[in-house]
Design a protein around this nucleic acid. Structure first.
Lengths: 153, 153
DNA sequence: CGTGAAACTTTCTACTC
DNA sequence: GAGTAGAAAGTTTCACG
């Protein structure tokens, strides 16, 4: 399993994947060679899946975030796969979950502005039958892209 | 601004930040040196903020995702800062937005299991006054960590 | 912007203790 | 695991076309 050093490494690499092995080694009180071995192991054992570049949404002209809560009347496997396909096709949809309870699905979407939501909305309802759609604009992001907690049993 | 090659590079780097410059150069039909210059520029101009390691949630013992929709009766700056502080303190809360409309805030949380939600819930209500809290369990993730669309005006 | 080459940094991999 | 050292890989930068 993971010891404290492994967890620290995962925490640091989630913040900056380009930290040199030398720096990481110092942070966890290990030699660079031992540290390098650990990181290799963390990858091999699947703790680290990949590294990704984080792109500035505003700089890209996509400052707006919205959440969409969906209800459907069709609860078939076909419908689900259709939603999956639609979501995969629309890059503005960055996250989709099937939920328990009062709502069936939640979508997170990123947009150049609030008005652009209508474009996505039309694509959605055109391609899939929806019972109820309510959209919420994120006015302010208080926390995002936070690293995962690393101290669980 | 950005041309097609820049956009392609951003797209590729969002999927795998460790792609070698040689591979990237080939993908956008450029020489490695020219490609390296572009990537440096994309960083300098703030398109690329950082690179992060993506950690496997399940492997880390955090397979459960939940969304929490909040209503509050206090709409002061103080309350907002308090929520920000609480969210910053609780690593299981990975995302928080202030919303328009029917709900005031949305939280995304990651947990070892559904039961653990109670622990977070208690921390929340203990530290901040909430008017209404409803939680939704993600039963299935249809899309997540999708790269940003790169083809906007 | 391309090419080619050089300089540099960093990582990986023994081998030893 | 630590430490060292050598090898290898990749990146950046430069001069020049």
């Amino acid at each position: 399993m993971l010891d404290d050093r492994d967890r620290k490494l995962l925490s640091l690499l989630q913040q900056d994947a380009e930290t040199s092995v030398a720096q990481l080694a110092e942070a966890v009180n290990l030699s660079p060679s031992a540290c390098s071995r650990r990181i290799t192991r963390l990858r091999e054992e699947g703790y680290i899946l990949r590294t990704t570049a984080e792109v500035d949404r505003r700089r890209m002209g996509l400052p707006t975030t919205m959440f969409v809560l969906l209800r459907t009347s069709e609860h078939t496997a076909d419908w689900l796969e259709r939603l999956r396909a639609v979501a995969a096709d629309i890059p503005e949809i960055v996250e989709v979950h099937r939920l328990t309870g009062n709502f069936d699905y939640i979508l997170k979407i990123v947009l150049p502005n609030v008005e652009y939501y209508d474009v996505i909305y039309k694509q959605l309802v055109h391609r899939i039958r929806l019972h109820d759609v309510s959209a919420y604009i994120s006015m302010e992001t208080l926390k995002s892209d936070a690293p995962l907690p690393t101290h669980h049993a």
